[in-house]
């Protein structure tokens, strides 16, 4: 499976994280790491250069929007491995008001999550 996209899962709920890994690992993604808070997420994104970060907006330490900003502006820099962030939440997108509309990142509701839906919101590969 050489062309599977690498994925970092960021969510403070361990149960959700492990089920998301279970589902996505079987449905076309190479899950390279998990993070339970924003600080760890930023560090792992730099270390692992994942192609996709599935990022929960509601994190215990930092705000998800700010974490997304940091990850995409980070020194990862390699054009072929530019990180794409997909925001996710148990809440509906309209619950985040204008912030979600102003964000350049895709959004996927947690209850819609599967390998196919995640693939659908991502930029087509190359």
């Amino acid at each position: 499976m050489a062309d599977m996209r690498t994925l970092l899962i960021v969510d403070d709920h361990a149960g959700f994280r492990s089920w998301a890994r279970e589902v996505l690992a079987h449905e076309g993604f190479d899950v390279v790491g998990e993070a339970g808070d924003g600080t760890t997420a930023i560090r792992l994104a730099e270390e692992l250069h994942p192609e996709v970060v599935l990022l929960d907006i509601q994190l215990p330490d930092l705000d998800g929007f700010a974490v997304a900003q940091q990850i995409t502006a980070g020194p990862t820099g390699h054009a072929e491995t530019a990180t794409e962030v997909v925001l996710t939440s148990g809440r509906a997108p309209e619950d985040y008001g204008r912030r979600i509309a102003a964000s350049t990142h895709r959004f996927l509701r947690k209850d819609d999550l599967s390998g196919a839906t995640l693939e659908a919101v991502l930029e087509p590969r190359r």
Binding site: H13, G15, F16, W19, A20, E22, V23, H26, E27, Q58, G90, R91, K110, D111, L113, S114
Partner: peptide, 21 residues
Amino acid sequence: LHDGAQQRLLALSLALHSARR
């Protein structure tokens, strides 16, 4: 509600998704 019960239900939804596969 969001951090507790809903997270569990969302995890459950993923689990059922897995079971189907």
